[in-house]
Design a protein around this nucleic acid. Structure first.
Lengths: 235, 235
DNA sequence: TGGAAATTCAAACGAGCGTTTGAATTTTTC
DNA sequence: GAAAAATTCAAACGCTCGTTTGAATTTCCA
């Protein structure tokens, strides 16, 4: 029996890369369809056409496979987001780029990912959207790690573009932005059905509809009067 | 051995209600913390202080328990939403109520639920937020059933309040609204960490911050120019 | 081309799962 | 207060899970 290759020194030669990629692709599809917990390694390896033990050999465990599924797409996407933002800031000289432009820089890499079927397309975004709501500590820690830098950079950019918002207020609004985005992209067919969305709408159209909604929300004045809430609730 | 009581004719006498309620409370808490799939009936009945077989005796199966957990809170909340909307429309006579008022009527029952610890409080809203993203067919079908009427009524109300939006456009915006709402309320520490939100923020504050964001988004003009997207992405 | 390393494979392991069983117990009902 | 119904209980069933094993096979490289 051979020892498992050391964690980070695995060379991507043809065979192992073939097997690893087939596993990653099958995992992406099945995690989308059934969720992480509900997908067994037996279905997964069956769908990938590889031996059951291949997952543990190549990835170590099911958890590490899940992280690998996320990393493969998230890492390039968030790097692209940061690069776009930097390009925007270079272009603008010392002036802060507009809220719209910053938001678009954030959305476009997600859109590109959704468009590119060779990079996983819509499947992956649904896995990601689901992962946001996952309570497992390892998922939460992993996502935090993956997103921390990107979010921090964008928060600074938005703060400059929206000087009327406090840092705390903006933190919340970014929270809402990520919520609407992930929910839209992750939404299952059932929810689209619930919303009576026609199948003709693709992800590109979703983002084109999402953008004006989010821009308007980001630019909105800071706080609503509490008494308005009470007025209605008192009926 | 006794037969299981008929599904709908179960009388809520003191003992069975006590056991059923303890199971529901424990399920609500554990589904929040670990998710549906990752919560075993053995932890659940252990936490509730009841026998393992009690879940199957009182609810039939784990799936039916999950539905019961959701129904206990969702049913009153969505009825309250519909009643608030009807009160609003009666008040306004033939005139359509404003977008703000309709949105508040939708948010307030959720806020009340979050406030009322005796009705489950924040725990339940997190279960719900997670359920939105659940891929299981039975969860999706159940939620569709629970929400269909409420969503349909609000869609008509928003259509009248926002005449510049097509039905399809509004469908999407309601989708975004539900996304931002459920995501905010369901968010586990991961995203709160991500957004560096202080723990002092409670759910009431979330909704007060969410409302102006959503109102602005709902009122926004319809579609962004596609070329704007291309302009930035071409960098 | 031959030996070492990497990979694949069938099989099994132990554990935990949701559910069922039938007897013991409690509660209800007359 | 006894018969009946409802509920609780400990135990077990059958199954699937993620993981491990060690031999068989393939790939790599000197």
């Amino acid at each position: 029996m051979a020892s498992r290759p050391a964690r980070k020194s695995v060379s991507f030669d043809a065979t192992s890369a073939g097997t690893k990629t087939r596993i990653l692709d099958a995992a992406e599809a099945l995690f989308t369809e059934h969720g992480y917990e509900a997908t067994s390694l037996r279905q997964l390896t069956g769908a990938a056409g590889v031996n059951l033990a291949a997952v543990n050999y190549h990835f170590g465990s099911k958890e590490e496979l899940f992280q690998a599924v996320l990393t493969r797409r998230l890492d390039p996407m968030n790097h692209e987001r940061i690069e776009l933002l930097e390009a925007l800031e270079r272009e603008a000289g010392g002036r802060p780029p507009s809220c719209e432009k910053v938001l678009f820089a954030m959305l476009i890499p997600a859109l590109r990912l959704a468009r590119d079927e060779r990079r996983g397309g819509k499947n992956f975004l649904r896995v990601l959207g689901r992962a946001y709501a996952d309570p497992s500590p390892f998922v939460r820690h992993f996502l935090h790690q993956q997103y921390a830098e990107m979010i921090a950079r964008y928060k600074e950019a938005f703060l400059r573009a929206l000087p009327h918002l406090s840092r705390q207020e903006l933190t919340w609004r970014l929270h809402f932005v990520m919520g609407a985005l992930s929910y839209s992209l992750a939404s299952t067919d059932a929810l689209k059905q619930l919303a009576q969305v026609t199948q003709a709408d693709n992800d590109e159209l979703i983002l084109q509809r999402l953008a004006p909604f989010l821009v308007a929300g980001l630019k909105a004045p800071a706080l609503v009067d509490t008494r308005k809430l009470e007025l209605v609730s008192g009926s």
